[in-house]
Every structure is written in structure tokens, then in C-alpha cells.
């Protein structure tokens, strides 16, 4: 079976699993499932960039912001366009932004690239304030998008429909990312990650490959941002803080670098650690200060502990656990008399 077909089949399976999950859970959970979806797409893009080509970006949230504002502007100014067209435009816009930033930072390496992208993450929300009339300043933009189509009335709620739309886009995006990563481009990126000079001597176009990796990651981030705007119905500069960018990268390492599974654990950590910490602070009646800050602290503590004890992240820990279980099983089976 050719690889793209296999990836599409896996995507369909994943979507079916999400639909099954949605059918047995409530509305609130549907929103969280949607959040896991678009976060996973953003993290998966970062996975390709960091895990694939070894470039560390601290500004991934900036591309989510570009995607989210693109979505809001399209809905507000071109209300007749269908959602799929909006998503298409968002990909084009984020690719353009990725090309601009990627080309500008192509000569930056290691900590210098990290520093530059960090500045982008902090600086970009300033644009929303600068162009107040167009981008809505600190109040941001509010949009209304259509819910489930009429023939599904009563079958799915609006939240469930949105979660399905999000996940359909996400699994398609993931299939594309997986195919890229398994192909020639992915091999070139990994060659650069392992040893840039050696890759260049082996004929890999280092500069171009790095820019392409950056652009693909930007597109995934932008698309994720657009989906977020679609689900939440609002975009504000304060949702795209430095903390978001840092959290995306940190969660990627927490989940495990080098595998799309890592991106799944990462996005679940981002969404659910936040939920649990907020619930915990409320249940323990710790007050408003604790309630506002506990999620971030909780995430940071989990991050530090996971990296302290499982340097390869959650996915790495699960894999070594699986390997150990298999070893035990084959050990016992070989000992039983045939």
C-alpha cells in the first residue's frame, strides 16, 4: 500500500475514533476534544520543524495568531465564502508569512533562531493594538460561524459539529505531515538535524530545506489558529502570548520528539493539565490568584518532572515500557514447556 494511502486510511480511522468519542460525551467535552485537535495540529507542525530539521522556534504561537486573525477577517469581510475556502486562504496566508519569516531567519542558527522567533512571538500581538480599527485592539474580533447543516439538525450539536470539522481538517493535515516526514524531504531534514555540515557535503540544499520546514510548520500553525478562531468565535491578542508559544514547544518535548504520537500527548497535556489544575484550584477553594495561575505552574512542574525522569518524553517512556513488557512476555513464553 503506498504511504499516502496508508496515512489517509489511518486518518479516517482516527476521525472515526473521534466521532465515536463525541457520540458518548457531552458538549463541554466536545469543545475540549476540538481544542485537543487544533492544538495537536500546531504541535505536529512544530514537531516537523524541531524534531525533523532541528530548528528551535519559540514563536509558533505567532503563526497561530496569523491564522486566527485571518479566519476572523475572512468571516467578517467575506461572509459568503464557505469554511473550506477560508481554511484554504489561511494556509496560503500562513505559507506566505512562513516564507517571509523563514527566509529572513534562514541564516540564524541554534539559540539565535530561538531568540529571533521569541521576539516575533512577543512582538506580533502589538500589531493588533497598532492597527486598532482593523484588528480590534485588545478586545479583538468576534465572529459568528454557521453550525451544523440543517439535515443534521437534532443529530449533532453545534459543538459536536465544530469538533468534527476541526478533526477532519486535523487528520488531513496530519496525514500530509506524516507523508512529508516519511519522504525525501523528511530524510533531508533529519540529515540536517543530525549534522548540518555533513548534510551539505552530501548534497542536501541546507538553506532551502530549512526554509521549507519552517514554512510547513507555519502552515500547520496557521491552520490550527484558524480552527481555534472557528471554534471559539473570538480572537484577542491576549490569547497569543509568549506563554502560548513556550507552552507549544515545551509540550512537544514533554510529549516526545520525533513522533506524531508525541504531538497527541502534548496537545492532551496542554488542554487537560489546564482543566485539571483549574478544577483543583476551584475545589480546594484556593482563591482567584491561585485559580488564575495554578494551570501554568502545574504545567511547568509536570514538564520539569517528566524531563527529569523520562528524557525522551511521554512517548519515549511509553515505548520503553512497551519494549519491557514484550521482553517479559517473550521471557515467560520461552520458559513455558512446549
Amino acid at each position: 500500500m503506498p504511504l499516502p494511502v496508508r496515512h489517509l486510511l489511518l486518518a479516517a480511522l482516527g476521525l472515526a475514533a473521534v466521532a465515536g468519542l463525541l457520540s458518548v460525551t457531552g458538549d463541554l467535552t466536545a469543545l475540549r476534544i476540538a481544542a485537543v485537535g487544533y492544538t495537536m495540529l500546531a504541535v505536529a507542525g512544530l514537531q516537523l520543524l524541531v524534531g525533523g530539521s532541528g530548528q528551535v522556534s519559540l514563536g509558533h504561537g505567532a503563526f497561530m495568531m496569523i491564522g486566527a486573525y485571518s479566519m476572523a477577517l475572512l468571516v467578517l469581510h467575506q461572509p459568503t465564502l464557505p469554511l473550506a475556502a477560508n481554511l484554504g486562504v489561511i494556509v496560503v496566508v500562513s505559507v506566505a508569512a512562513g516564507v517571509a519569516v523563514g527566509a529572513a531567519t534562514a541564516r540564524l542558527h541554534g539559540p539565535y533562531l530561538a531568540g529571533a522567533t521569541l521576539i516575533l512571538a512577543v512582538g506580533l500581538p502589538g500589531l493588533a493594538h497598532r492597527f486598532h480599527a482593523f484588528l480590534g485592539g485588545s478586545n479583538g474580533l468576534n465572529i459568528r460561524t454557521a453550525g451544523a447543516p440543517p439535515f443534521l439538525d437534532g443529530l449533532v450539536t453545534t459543538s459536536e459539529w465544530r469538533a468534527l470539522v476541526v478533526w477532519t481538517t486535523v487528520v488531513l493535515g496530519l496525514a500530509v505531515l506524516a507523508t512529508i516526514s516519511a519522504g525525501r524531504l523528511g530524510r533531508r531534514m533529519r540529515a540536517i538535524r543530525d549534522d548540518e555540515t555533513a548534510a551539505a557535503m552530501a548534497g542536501v540544499p541546507v538553506g532551502a530545506t530549512k526554509v521549507v520546514a519552517f514554512v510547513i510548520a507555519s502552515a500547520a500553525g496557521g491552520l490550527a489558529g484558524g480552527l481555534q478562531a472557528y471554534v471559539l468565535g473570538t480572537v484577542t491578542p491576549s490569547s497569543f502570548t509568549l506563554v502560548l508559544s513556550l507552552t507549544l514547544l515545551a509540550a512537544l518535548v514533554l510529549g516526545g520528539i520525533g513522533s506524531l504520537w508525541g504531538a497527541l500527548w502534548a496537545s492532551m497535556a496542554i488542554v487537560y493539565l489546564d482543566v485539571w489544575a483549574t478544577d483543583l484550584a476551584r475545589a480546594a477553594n484556593l482563591g482567584r490568584n491561585a485559580e488564575n495561575n495554578l494551570p501554568v505552574v502545574f504545567f511547568g512542574v509536570v514538564l520539569i518532572l517528566v524531563l527529569r525522569f523520562w528524557p525522551l518524553g511521554v512517548h519515549g517512556a511509553l515505548r520503553s515500557l512497551g519494549a519491557r513488557l514484550r521482553a517479559v512476555r517473550s521471557d515467560t513464553s520461552s520458559r513455558t514447556p512446549q
Binding site: V243, V297, L303, I304, L307, R308
Partner: peptide, 8 residues
């Protein structure tokens, strides 16, 4: 990443 976690 741990310095980022510490920041948070």
C-alpha cells in the same frame, strides 16, 4: 525546555 518550564 526546562528553563522554559521554570519560567512558567
Amino acid at each position: 525546555i526546562v528553563t522554559l518550564g521554570l519560567l512558567l
